[in-house]
């Protein structure tokens, strides 16, 4: 069944929720950048960064367990780094029993480091979106000089995403209800071309409906005075207190980076 499983900001009203979205966006990016710059194998620093994320989660009253659980969605990508274990240089720790591939110690360290860094980074992104409404984030993006046209396109996409996902769900329910198969027969009873044609036409019809909807939306906007430029509320002054609060996690992470580079 198709359903959108995205993050909504939690209801709580904590210091992290109230922080200026521009500060939060930059802090999240800085934390991900610092995590990325961490040397390979600095496991102490990874644990400290992880603790920092969990501390933020607790301050924001977001369940740390759920943050971790949700971040595990990146694990399938570890497959890209797993090859390092068997292609890395000596010393070898052991050999795989059946294939005899040697397990390289530096390769293993590198692979585990990539996965850890990736988990910490996605946790930072989860905390950002769990404490900030998406529209606020878009507003922060445009006041950080991301081209206004792009931000406007993204905000339109966000606005109609759920509507079109429902439409896709209805299309796929209709397909399923018309393609019953006798119990026991394989799902792939019809040819691949047949199945691709059905799905392709569904996508085509989704696009035609999207086009027609955008024509109606455009006309409605035009009648309400749309001139082509997205309307924007002037951003409020950036409060120095927010900047200072934002500096705390960044400084902690940066000093962790400095320490692990020196050691």
């Amino acid at each position: 069944m198709i359903q959108l499983q995205h993050l909504n900001p939690t209801e709580a009203d904590t210091a992290l929720h109230r922080l200026d979205p521009r500060v939060k966006l930059i802090v999240a990016l800085s934390l991900i950048l610092i995590t990325g710059l961490m040397p390979s194998g600095a496991f102490g620093a990874y644990i400290a960064l992880f603790a920092l994320m969990m501390a933020e989660a607790i301050i924001a009253r977001v369940s740390p367990v759920l943050v971790v659980a949700r971040s595990l969605a990146v694990l399938p990508f570890s497959l890209a780094a797993v090859t390092l274990i068997f292609t890395g240089p000596e010393p070898y720790l052991a050999a795989l029993p059946v294939t005899g591939w040697p397990i390289s110690e530096p390769g293993l360290v590198q692979c585990v480091s990539i996965v850890f860094k990736s988990l910490i980074s996605v946790q930072a992104a989860i905390l950002l979106i769990a404490t900030t409404h998406f529209t606020t984030l878009l507003w922060a993006m445009s006041s950080l000089r991301i081209p206004g046209v792009l931000v406007a396109i993204i905000s339109f996409m966000y606005r109609y995403l759920f509507l079109l996902a429902d439409e896709a769900a209805r299309l796929s329910r209709a397909r399923d209800s018309r393609s019953a198969v006798p119990a026991g027969s394989p799902v792939t009873a019809r040819s691949l071309i047949f199945r691709a044609r059905t799905t392709g036409r569904m996508i085509g019809s989704l696009l035609v409906r999207a086009f027609e909807r955008s024509e109606r939306v455009y006309n409605a906007m035009l009648s309400r005075g749309y001139t082509g430029a997205p309307m924007q509320i002037d951003p409020p002054q950036l409060c120095p207190r927010d900047v200072l609060i934002g500096l705390i996690p960044v400084l902690i992470a940066a000093s962790l980076l400095a320490i692990s580079l020196i050691i």
């Binding site: 396109i153 993204i154 339109f156 079109l164 996902a165 769900a169």
Partner: peptide, 22 residues
């Protein structure tokens, strides 16, 4: 000026289309 609603909604349709499996 048509481009903004058009591209936004087509973007949403591409996204929704990616959810249709076969």
């Amino acid at each position: 000026e048509r481009q903004i609603p058009l591209m936004g909604i087509v973007g949403a349709a591409i996204f929704a289309g990616q959810m249709l499996n076969f």
